[in-house]
Protein backbone atom coordinates (compact mmCIF):
# COMPACT_ATOMS: atom_id res chain seq x y z
CA UNK A 1 0.00 0.00 0.00
CA UNK A 2 1.37 3.41 -0.86
CA UNK A 3 1.55 5.72 2.11
CA UNK A 4 1.26 9.47 2.10
CA UNK A 5 5.04 9.96 2.01
CA UNK A 6 5.31 7.80 -1.07
CA UNK A 7 2.50 9.70 -2.74
CA UNK A 8 4.40 12.91 -2.12
CA UNK A 9 7.57 11.37 -3.62
CA UNK A 10 5.61 10.22 -6.68
CA UNK A 11 4.19 13.70 -7.14
CA UNK A 12 7.64 15.22 -6.80
CA UNK A 13 9.08 12.78 -9.36
CA UNK A 14 6.22 13.53 -11.74
CA UNK A 15 6.79 17.25 -11.24
CA UNK A 16 10.51 16.99 -11.95
CA UNK A 17 9.85 14.83 -14.99
CA UNK A 18 7.51 17.50 -16.32
CA UNK A 19 10.07 20.22 -15.59
CA UNK A 20 12.79 18.18 -17.31
CA UNK A 21 10.65 17.78 -20.39
CA UNK A 22 9.81 21.46 -20.47
CA UNK A 23 13.43 22.47 -19.85
CA UNK A 24 14.66 20.24 -22.64
CA UNK A 25 12.05 21.69 -24.88
CA UNK A 26 12.85 25.30 -24.18
CA UNK A 27 16.63 24.95 -24.21
CA UNK A 28 17.34 22.65 -27.08
CA UNK A 29 14.70 23.08 -29.68
CA UNK A 30 11.21 24.16 -30.31
CA UNK A 31 9.26 21.17 -29.18
CA UNK A 32 5.61 20.43 -28.93
CA UNK A 33 5.41 18.91 -25.48
CA UNK A 34 1.91 17.68 -26.10
CA UNK A 35 2.07 13.94 -25.83
CA UNK A 36 0.15 11.74 -28.22
CA UNK A 37 -2.05 8.98 -26.91
CA UNK A 38 -2.04 5.74 -28.79
CA UNK A 39 -4.50 3.09 -27.86
CA UNK A 40 -2.36 1.67 -25.05
CA UNK A 41 0.67 3.97 -24.86
CA UNK A 42 1.62 7.61 -24.68
CA UNK A 43 4.23 8.99 -27.06
CA UNK A 44 6.09 12.11 -25.95
CA UNK A 45 5.44 15.13 -28.19
CA UNK A 46 9.16 15.08 -28.82
CA UNK A 47 11.57 12.45 -27.50
CA UNK A 48 13.45 13.46 -24.37
CA UNK A 49 17.24 13.33 -24.30
CA UNK A 50 18.73 11.41 -21.38
CA UNK A 51 21.87 11.95 -19.34
CA UNK A 52 24.43 9.18 -19.04
CA UNK A 53 24.41 6.46 -16.38
CA UNK A 54 26.70 3.56 -15.68
CA UNK A 55 25.14 0.14 -15.08
CA UNK A 56 26.09 -3.47 -15.79
CA UNK A 57 24.30 -5.92 -18.09
CA UNK A 58 23.77 -9.54 -17.10
CA UNK A 59 26.63 -10.64 -19.39
CA UNK A 60 28.96 -8.44 -17.37
CA UNK A 61 29.29 -5.71 -19.99
CA UNK A 62 28.86 -2.01 -19.32
CA UNK A 63 25.38 -0.70 -19.86
CA UNK A 64 25.05 3.03 -20.36
CA UNK A 65 23.42 5.60 -22.61
CA UNK A 66 25.65 4.61 -25.51
CA UNK A 67 24.47 0.99 -25.19
CA UNK A 68 20.91 2.09 -25.87
CA UNK A 69 21.80 3.77 -29.15
CA UNK A 70 21.02 2.00 -32.41
CA UNK A 71 18.05 -0.06 -31.19
CA UNK A 72 14.58 0.46 -29.87
CA UNK A 73 14.36 -0.67 -26.26
CA UNK A 74 11.60 -1.49 -23.81
CA UNK A 75 12.70 -0.88 -20.23
CA UNK A 76 10.94 -2.44 -17.28
CA UNK A 77 12.03 -1.77 -13.71
CA UNK A 78 11.53 -4.55 -11.17
CA UNK A 79 13.28 -7.24 -9.14
CA UNK A 80 13.71 -10.99 -9.35
CA UNK A 81 11.97 -11.67 -6.03
CA UNK A 82 8.80 -10.12 -7.47
CA UNK A 83 6.44 -13.11 -7.87
CA UNK A 84 3.71 -11.54 -9.91
CA UNK A 85 3.95 -8.28 -11.85
CA UNK A 86 7.58 -8.61 -13.00
CA UNK A 87 7.48 -12.12 -14.49
CA UNK A 88 4.09 -11.43 -16.03
CA UNK A 89 5.30 -8.23 -17.70
CA UNK A 90 8.49 -9.86 -19.01
CA UNK A 91 6.39 -12.69 -20.37
CA UNK A 92 3.98 -10.28 -22.06
CA UNK A 93 6.84 -8.34 -23.66
CA UNK A 94 8.40 -11.56 -24.91
CA UNK A 95 5.08 -12.76 -26.31
CA UNK A 96 4.57 -9.43 -28.06
CA UNK A 97 7.96 -9.67 -29.76
CA UNK A 98 7.19 -13.23 -30.75
CA UNK A 99 3.86 -12.16 -32.26
CA UNK A 100 5.49 -9.29 -34.15
CA UNK A 101 8.52 -11.26 -35.31
CA UNK A 102 7.24 -12.00 -38.81
CA UNK A 103 5.61 -8.67 -39.53
CA UNK A 104 8.36 -6.32 -38.34
CA UNK A 105 11.86 -5.95 -39.69
CA UNK A 106 13.22 -5.07 -36.27
CA UNK A 107 12.06 -5.73 -32.73
CA UNK A 108 12.75 -3.71 -29.59
CA UNK A 109 15.20 -5.03 -27.04
CA UNK A 110 13.54 -6.12 -23.80
CA UNK A 111 15.51 -4.86 -20.82
CA UNK A 112 14.75 -5.51 -17.17
CA UNK A 113 16.46 -3.10 -14.83
CA UNK A 114 16.64 -4.56 -11.34
CA UNK A 115 16.18 -1.92 -8.66
CA UNK A 116 17.18 -4.48 -6.02
CA UNK A 117 20.93 -4.83 -6.58
CA UNK A 118 21.58 -6.15 -3.06
CA UNK A 119 19.79 -9.40 -3.87
CA UNK A 120 19.99 -9.35 -7.66
CA UNK A 121 23.61 -10.01 -8.41
CA UNK A 122 24.64 -10.11 -12.05
CA UNK A 123 24.73 -13.92 -11.85
CA UNK A 124 21.22 -14.19 -10.40
CA UNK A 125 19.89 -11.65 -12.86
CA UNK A 126 21.53 -13.53 -15.75
CA UNK A 127 19.81 -16.80 -14.76
CA UNK A 128 16.51 -15.01 -14.22
CA UNK A 129 16.25 -13.18 -17.54
CA UNK A 130 17.52 -16.20 -19.45
CA UNK A 131 14.68 -18.24 -17.97
CA UNK A 132 12.38 -16.04 -20.07
CA UNK A 133 14.53 -15.75 -23.16
CA UNK A 134 18.16 -15.30 -24.01
CA UNK A 135 17.03 -12.17 -25.83
CA UNK A 136 15.98 -10.46 -22.59
CA UNK A 137 18.70 -8.28 -21.11
CA UNK A 138 19.07 -7.89 -17.36
CA UNK A 139 20.66 -4.73 -16.01
CA UNK A 140 21.54 -3.50 -12.55
CA UNK A 141 24.21 -1.56 -10.70
CA UNK A 142 24.81 0.77 -7.81
CA UNK A 143 21.69 2.52 -6.56
CA UNK A 144 23.02 5.98 -7.32
CA UNK A 145 23.53 4.95 -10.95
CA UNK A 146 20.11 3.30 -11.09
CA UNK A 147 18.68 6.54 -9.74
CA UNK A 148 20.32 8.52 -12.55
CA UNK A 149 18.16 6.54 -14.96
CA UNK A 150 14.93 6.21 -12.96
CA UNK A 151 14.80 9.89 -12.04
CA UNK A 152 14.91 10.88 -15.70
CA UNK A 153 12.14 8.50 -16.66
CA UNK A 154 9.77 9.24 -13.75
CA UNK A 155 10.21 5.72 -12.40
CA UNK A 156 9.52 5.32 -8.69
CA UNK A 157 10.79 2.54 -6.48
CA UNK A 158 11.09 1.94 -2.76
CA UNK A 159 13.01 -0.93 -1.20
CA UNK A 160 11.17 -2.06 1.92
CA UNK A 161 14.18 -3.30 3.89
CA UNK A 162 12.22 -2.84 7.12
CA UNK A 163 10.24 -5.98 6.16
CA UNK A 164 13.29 -8.14 6.85
CA UNK A 165 15.23 -10.59 4.69
CA UNK A 166 12.35 -11.30 2.31
CA UNK A 167 11.50 -7.66 1.75
CA UNK A 168 9.37 -6.43 -1.13
CA UNK A 169 10.06 -3.52 -3.43
CA UNK A 170 7.41 -1.06 -4.51
CA UNK A 171 8.05 -0.06 -8.10
CA UNK A 172 6.53 1.63 -11.10
CA UNK A 173 5.08 -0.98 -13.39
CA UNK A 174 5.29 1.18 -16.51
CA UNK A 175 7.24 0.03 -19.55
CA UNK A 176 9.41 2.80 -20.96
CA UNK A 177 10.21 2.90 -24.66
CA UNK A 178 13.58 4.28 -25.70
CA UNK A 179 14.25 5.09 -29.35
CA UNK A 180 17.36 4.44 -31.43
CA UNK A 181 18.85 7.76 -30.37
CA UNK A 182 18.64 6.64 -26.73
CA UNK A 183 15.85 9.13 -26.05
CA UNK A 184 12.78 8.64 -23.85
CA UNK A 185 10.15 8.14 -26.53
CA UNK A 186 6.98 6.58 -25.12
CA UNK A 187 5.46 4.92 -22.09
CA UNK A 188 3.09 2.00 -21.65
CA UNK A 189 1.24 2.36 -18.36
CA UNK A 190 0.18 -0.66 -16.29
CA UNK A 191 -1.77 -2.85 -16.28
CA UNK A 192 -0.27 -4.41 -19.37
CA UNK A 193 -1.31 -7.11 -21.77
CA UNK A 194 0.49 -8.68 -24.72
CA UNK A 195 -2.14 -7.17 -27.00
CA UNK A 196 -1.27 -3.64 -25.82
CA UNK A 197 2.31 -4.02 -27.01
CA UNK A 198 1.37 -5.87 -30.21
CA UNK A 199 -1.07 -3.11 -31.13
CA UNK A 200 1.05 -0.04 -30.38
CA UNK A 201 4.68 -1.02 -30.97
CA UNK A 202 4.38 -1.16 -34.78
CA UNK A 203 2.63 2.22 -34.84
CA UNK A 204 5.30 3.87 -32.72
CA UNK A 205 8.25 2.34 -34.53
CA UNK A 206 6.81 2.88 -38.03
CA UNK A 207 6.61 6.62 -37.53
CA UNK A 208 10.26 6.92 -36.59
Amino acid sequence: MINSNEKIIIKILAFFLMITVITNCSNERSIDITSKKNEFSTVLGNPMSLSDFNLTADDGSNFNLETLKGNWSLLFFGYTHCPDVCPLTLHQLGQANKALDESMTELPNIIMVSVDPDRDSIEILHQYVNSFSQKVIGVTGFLDEINKLTSQLGIFYKINKEEGENYSVNHSAAVIMINKNAEFHAVFSAPHSTEHFVTDLPKIMAKN
Binding site: M1, I2, K7, V85, N170, H171, S172, A173
Partner: peptide, 11 residues
Amino acid sequence: TIMNNGIASMI
Protein backbone atom coordinates in the same frame (compact mmCIF):
# COMPACT_ATOMS: atom_id res chain seq x y z
CA THR B 1 -0.26 -7.24 -5.12
CA ILE B 2 -1.68 -3.75 -5.15
CA MET B 3 -1.46 -1.41 -8.11
CA ASN B 4 -1.92 2.20 -7.14
CA ASN B 5 -1.14 5.10 -9.48
CA GLY B 6 0.96 2.78 -11.61
CA ILE B 7 3.05 1.64 -8.63
CA ALA B 8 3.08 -2.09 -7.87
CA SER B 9 3.46 -2.96 -4.21
CA MET B 10 2.94 -6.07 -2.16
CA ILE B 11 1.52 -6.51 1.30
